[in-house]
């Protein structure tokens, strides 16, 4: 893994990109890494495009510049890819683009113009099936950690438990972890 691993998440407000970025960072924190998780704030309305960032490092992080050349980009809503340049700054050789969609990687390539590695996953489908709502963040994390090994699946499971047990209860925590595992299984590395 690179010295500093950087992830950018594009979503619509309400889809959980901020907590997705934080879950990823806290999972890395559990593994003894230095982390940063920060959302980009604007005048937010539910449904408006949002961006969140995660930095993971073995060394102490001092920089506070935004992430412009991420190692991985997660797109929580394929519709955004048509209006927001989601693959901007993503290296075509090493970068990874993961999109929540029912479309194929080839179709996403056409929409985004990204010629590097693309993974697609119906994260909304998984979330609707298990939770009954469009909350693709946890399944998207499942896909990311499968293809990158940036953190372990166990560390994400632990953090989901810590974050959601008090507010969502045991049942929903279980369903979220199920969603994480299903995405993890579904994505071919």
């Amino acid at each position: 893994m690179k010295e500093i691993y950087e992830v950018r998440m594009h979503a619509r407000a309400g889809q959980g990109a901020k907590s997705g970025s934080q879950l990823l960072a806290e999972s890395a924190f559990k593994l003894g890494k230095w982390i940063q998780s920060f959302p980009e704030y604007g005048s937010e309305r539910r449904g408006a495009p949002t961006v969140s960032y995660t930095r993971i490092s073995d060394k102490q992080l001092r920089t506070h510049e935004p992430i412009v050349n991420p190692d991985a980009v997660l797109v929580f809503d394929q519709g955004i890819a048509g209006s927001v340049p989601v693959a901007q700054g993503l290296c075509e050789k090493h970068g990874i683009l993961i999109v929540n969609t029912t479309k194929s990687a080839e179709e996403i390539r056409k929409i985004t113009g990204f010629n590097g590695k693309i993974y697609t996953l119906d994260a909304t489908g998984i979330s609707l099936k298990l939770l009954g709502i469009d909350a693709p963040n946890v399944p998207m994390l499942g896909a990311l950690i499968k293809v990158t090994d940036v953190v372990s699946i166990e560390s994400v499971e632990d953090v989901i438990g810590e974050h959601f047990l008090a507010t969502l209860g045991e049942e929903k925590v279980k369903k979220n972890i199920e969603g994480l595992r299903e995405a993890w299984k579904e994505i071919a590395k």
Partner: peptide, 12 residues
Amino acid sequence: QDGFITGHSVEN
């Protein structure tokens, strides 16, 4: 401290 840049950024 700096608004958003550190105020809303989760770090160790």
